[in-house]
Structures are given as structure tokens and as C-alpha cells.
Write a protein that binds this DNA or RNA. Sequence first.
RNA 1: GCGCCCGUAGCUCAGCUGGAUAGAGCGUUUGGCUACGAACCAAAAGGUCGGGAGUUCGAAUCCCCCCGGGCGCACCA
Length: 681
Amino acid sequence: MLVYKTVENRIRKALKHHIHERYKVDVPIVLERPPKLAMGEAASPLCFELAKQMRKPPRALAQEIANSLKPVPGVARIEVAGGGYLNFFFDRAQFFRAACEEAGHESVSPVANAPKTVVEHTSINPNKAAHIGHVRNAVLGDTFARLLRHAGRRVEVQNYIDNTGVQVADVVLGFLHLEKKSLAEVKTLAAGPKFDYLCWDLYTRVTQWLAEDKSRLELRNQTLKEIEEGHGDTAKAGEIIATAIVHCHLRTLDRLGIDFDLLSQESEILHLKFWDAAFRMLKERNAIQLATSGKNAGCWVMQLPSQRDAADDESNTAAETSEAKPEEPPEEAEAKIIVRSTGTVTYVGKDIAHHLWKFGLLDRDFHYQRFHKHPDGHEAWVTSSDRDDPGAPSFGHAHDVFNVIDSRQAYPQQVVVAGLRALGYDEEADHLKHFAYNVVALTPRCAQEMGYEIPTEDAKKQYVDVSGRKGQGVKADDLLDRLETSARAEVDSRHPESPEAERSAIGHAIAIGALRYFLLRFTRSTVIAFDFEDALSFEGETGPYVQYAVVRVNGILRKGAELDPDIGAENSKNIERLKSGALDVAPFLATPAGDDLWDIVLLAGSLDSRVEFAISAQEPAILARFAFELAQAFNVFYHKHHILSEKDAEKRAFLLLITALVREQLVTTLGIMGITAPEKM
RNA sequence: GCGCCCGUAGCUCAGCUGGAUAGAGCGUUUGGCUACGAACCAAAAGGUCGGGAGUUCGAAUCCCCCCGGGCGCACCA
């Protein structure tokens, strides 16, 4: 779908070429949306900049350009406005025709060996139930992956499972030592319902239990070591627990329509000795050094470029080679420990190895097994240390990597990038992006509602943090249940005659629409202060508002078919008439009477540019906003124009075409956000 | 101490690489269901864009300094 963007690009090209030819200078080709429709569909203030270089008044320059610029296809006329704006007025009928022809054409699927983009998201510690913060991560990552796929990119979605970490060890400790369960009992519990909820509570108790007696930390370290080494009952318990929890998480995420291609597990990174390979590379290329003195003595450390060096990176790349390097030991403040003096590798070290694998730079690979079948039939694979299931696709070998990780982990993410760079992989370092987002907190009111004790000074704050260790937080499944219950109640009252299965499906679609939209409407850097009242809302700027617009379109078309069974055929015939020119919509779009219709047509044709913007800004909220704007425009249109009773046959045909176009764009947009639009609601 | 993020209407948030009169939703007040579904629409009220200085033809946006909040800176992950 390339409508608005197509015209915009043509204008850009024409302006660039023209100014270069005529004035022999280059100015940035800035194009923006004018504040009002009466000022056209695209505008450029570039004459202000050009005026400086040419020493001529901007308005005169604008006039010159407007008069001499060769006609741009899709642009009807150019006007000069204000102190020197160039305003471009689109050919409305042509734009509409293009939009209708393009709408609904699926985005081109990428060729098999196109550069691959890996998106890693979710990555929940497999030791307890998923909460609202995890869902924000998953929804952001899933939506971004869908955005990339929509734009024709080849995408692989990975979910990193830290199944050998402290958090898993704590729960193992809880079952085996605090609860004195046998391995068989753990196995039975893990197979039971709501195992993730059980662990949620146990984890809290273990945290408490460890705090009561510090000597128990020794037991925890022992447990962790056994899990890492992968032998014995402790390791077996860890594997059973982590795997069962991952299945719980996937079931929760399946409710939200979130799929994965690969679950990459830390246990395999350990067992297949990815780190050994990475360690060798790091040492060979002198990316890390063994500290011989100071507080880091005995550790392998990586020197990080200081903030100043990073800022001046480009200007002194030449200078640094000429400098006599005295080979002094890295300054402690800027040294990051990669290997401890005990010889064990830190988390960042493992992450560097993991990312070398992601980019296909490591001389070894995982084995792969089938793990989970998503409801849509898509199969998620898991890494394995010894056995391959047949039919595994090729994983990794990424050209670009996006890691959806909360912004508190910005520093370790930078270290990984620095590691790649230190190894000489500058290109890969440039292609590794931390897709950072802020946390989900609770409003003080919500925290109190959930029964958490909050200090009095926190009660005045906008939001309060929750602690997983204390068992605080809104569990994803609980929230989804509440949303579904609430949506179901509304559906039941509106459609008591509909069969149970249908009402249930609609309630589900609305619940997901509400939640995914709620999490997407905030920009990534915003801390979401969660409150049930806001999240459970179905009115105003919400997912159900957008879904409702689609339902209204469906209602119109359904009603239309009752009155006139041929309406569907008529619509497709009208598209043909539009293409051939037999249906002339120009009079209906003419200014000023047709401005309100043009308004919605223009917006509907802007999906392409919004998608591109959302990708380049790495900001799914841009798409959410677009969905709301288009739905809102449709509601206005709906109230102003009664479609089915329109007497003028040509205009009725036109209104129906707009309606179909808007539905197509709304359904596509919602689809990218992972939201479905039910037939009725 | 150093680094990153945030401060915009009563509340929750948009505002893209500087651009034309700072926008939405919620809440409040008022009006609209005998025309395609009112989970909607229309209208009103509501803002010294945290403060100050600077760059610019032009600043909510960029630079600097303050004030106020959040988060990082482990031989944790």
C-alpha cells in the first residue's frame, strides 16, 4: 500500500532535482503536513532555508519554484502561502483511485534469502507467572515484528529463556528444601493447572525464607551451580520447573495472539560451550584483558569507551592510530568484568556469546527441537544440546537484531555492543538495537486495591513500583480473565440471542483489543501507571473503539445486502468503473463541499507513511494513534453521511467505496497490532 | 559523583528529523437514538508547554544552567 508516501516521494524528488538545477545548491527537503486541509496535503518550508543561501526573500523564491516546477504526478496544483511556504494540493480523485486499487493487497512476502531481522522479546524468567510488565514487552515486540513483516522484511522472533539462573534456582530451592518435595512430586505439580501461579507464591516465600537466615544463601549457590552444570536431581527439577513455566507463559501469550519462532535457552549456551568459543575470540583479538592488579585482579575485563570518547567517536578515529599506545591497564571505573576471578563467566559475557551466535559469527550452532504449536498452527522451536528434530529451519544469521528489553538494562546492552565492536564487528554492532521501553508500575490507588502495603510517602506519587520478589504485580492471566468477563457481560446484554461460542469469541476479541491497544498507545519511554479502571475501559481512545468502527462498517454492508443482495457485486463493479474512469468521483471530492470526504480518504491512504514512520522511529504507538484517528474519522463520516439511503446512485457508490476502503485499512492496521475485528460486538 | 529518561489542560497522554492558531482521551456542563449499531456524534469550559538564559526568520521541539521526579552505574541476572 503506497499512496500518500508515493506522492510525497515524488514531490521530494522533484523539489530536490529542481532546486539543484536552478539554484545550484542543496537544501534539506523538508516536507510536512499543513495544519489545515485548506493549505493542501503536503507543504515545504524549505524556501526559508534557501532564502539564507540565495540572499533573496523566501516568498519570492517560493513563487519562482511554484511557477517553474514541472508538473508532479498526483499533485493538482502548488500554492505559495504565509511567508514562503510551498503548499501542494493533491489530485484527490486520483489519490482515491490509487488507494482503492492498493487497499487489501497483501504486502509482498520477502524472498527466502533476504536479509533477516531477529526480534527478541518476552524473555520472561521461567520461575513464575507472567505479569502486566511482561505483557508490555511481548505486545511491543510482537507488534514491532508484525510491522516489519508488513513492510516486507524477513523476520525471526526469538524468546530468550534464562532457565539456569538464580530465579529458577530459588524456586527449585523452594520445592526441594523449603517444601521438601521429591522430584516425582515436583513433576506432578508441574503437570497440574496454574503451576505458574503456584510458583509465584512459592517464589515469594523463598525470598522471605532466604532473608530469614543468610546461611541459606550457601544452599542457593550450591543449587545454582548444580543447575548450571546440568547434572543430578537438582538440575532435573530445574529443567522440569522451567519447561513447565515456559509452557504456562506460552499459553498466556497464545491468548494474546503472540507467536515465536525460536526459544533460545541459556542451558544450551552453557552446555554447548558457546562461551568457550566466544572467550577464545575475545582473547585472540585482545578485546578483553586479564587484570593483574587492583580490585579486579584475576578478572578478565573489557574496557568500555568513556562517554567522551563515544561522543567524539567520529572525529578522532584518525587520531587514535597515530597515538603511541602505552598499553596501560584499563581504568577500573571503565572496566567491565566479563570473567570473574573464580573463572566463571558473567551474564554479559554469555550475552556477548549469544549475540555472536545471533549474527552467525560463532563457529557453532544449537540443535533444535519442536516445542509448541501456536493456535494458528505456527510452530515454535526450542534449542537443544544434543538432538535435532527433522524439518528445523535455519535460525540466527541475522542482519539486524532488535532486543526488546526494558530501559533499565540499557547499560549491559551497551556492553554487548561494545563487545562486538571490540571484536571488530562494527557493522553488526551498528545493527544491534536495544528496543528499550519503560516499566509498568501501578497507580497508588491500584496498589492499595490489590492489598499491597505502600509507604505513606508513596501514596502521593503518580505510580509505585511493584516487586516480583514480594509477589506484587498484576498477573497477565488474571487481567485477561477480568477483561474477558467484563467484555462478555457487555456482549451478553447486546446479543443475548447469539450462541455461546460466538459470544465467547467476541468477548475474547474485545478483551485482547482493549489490552493490546492500552499497552500500545503509550510511547516506549512512558512509564505506564497501571490502573484497572483505565485498562478495562472500552470507550474513548481504546481498542474496542477502533473495533467498533469496523463492526459498524460490517453492519452497513450486512444491512445493505439485506436490502439489495447484489451490493457486494455492485461494489466490485464500481471499483472497475473507478479504474476505467466510468465512475467520476472528482465532483464529490471537490473543495470545499467535498472536504470532509477528502479528509477520510486522505487519512485512509496514509497507512503506508505511518507504518514507515513507526518502523523508523521504532515506535508502535504511532500505529495505535493512526488506528484511532482513522476510526474517529470514520465515525464522523458515518454520522454526516447516510450511505444506504443516498439517492444519488453515483454518490452512493462512492460512499460505499470509501466505507470498504476504510474497513480494509482499519482491519490491516488492527492486524499489525495483533487485534482482530469481530463481525459484530 | 557520572550517565540515560521524564516534567505539556483537573487526570492520563500525543506532538516526527525546529515550522503556520499547542492536540486527543477521560472527567465536567449542554445537546443528539422513529435513518446503516449511541462501545457513537456535536458543542462548551479548561494550557505562563517545570523555571531561566541562548541559537534561529521561526523553539513544546535544538544548546547551556537551575528546580522537581524516575532509572542505571556489582566478581547479580
